[in-house]
């Protein structure tokens, strides 16, 4: 290194160190931020249940409409098979009540018909259709996931 460089090289060195300093501080901050996000992102509560055993299919005769409160759903035995409608309102998530001709949400007044289609109210989408499967042994399983 030529020591007789003069003021120009001194400036370059100072700038370089400043850049290096800002770089390491920036890197430290980034590392810290990533760590913080991972730290805060941890979920301690166990994930909610998404599979529900409903019992033997014979418990639900054709044409029946059975509420399944623990899954927040209603089970239908249609001619084509078993389906379920989710009682979680598609508007903002309140639990919908069953009424005479269909469903009514107590929170903001959405109304649905017996098939879950929107009749009225702030909700734009119909009630969610949930999958129901039958095991070889004739047991019904409801999937809310």
């Amino acid at each position: 290194m030529n020591k007789k460089q003069g003021p120009v090289s001194k400036l370059h060195r100072r700038d370089f160190i400043m850049v290096a300093l800002k770089g390491t501080l920036g890197l430290s901050s980034t590392l810290g931020l990533i760590g913080l996000i991972r730290f805060l992102g941890y979920q301690s509560d166990p994930a909610p249940q998404t599979e529900f055993e409903l019992g033997p299919a014979s418990n639900f005769p054709p044409g029946s409409r059975t509420p399944v409160p623990e899954a927040q759903a209603v089970l239908y035995h249609m001619p084509a098979g078993f389906i379920a409608l989710s009682l979680v309102c598609p508007h903002l998530g309140c639990v919908i009540n069953s009424v005479e001709q269909g469903y009514a949400c107590p929170c903001h007044g959405s109304r649905f018909d017996a098939q879950g289609q929107v009749l009225n109210g702030p909700a734009r989408e119909p009630m969610r259709v949930l999958r129901v499967e039958q095991t070889p042994g004739g047991q019904l399983i409801l999937y809310t996931g």
Binding site: I17, M18, A20, L21, T24, L27, S28, L31, P46
Partner: peptide, 30 residues
């Protein structure tokens, strides 16, 4: 500034060391 840079470098290295230690933790099986 050099001292500050060296100290920040040390800080960086310590954070990288912590990240390395975190990666070596066994993945919890619940």
């Amino acid at each position: 500034t050099i001292r500050l840079f060296l100290a920040s470098l040390l800080l960086c290295l310590s954070l990288l060391g912590a990240a390395w230690l975190q990666s070596r933790q066994p993945r919890p099986v619940s």
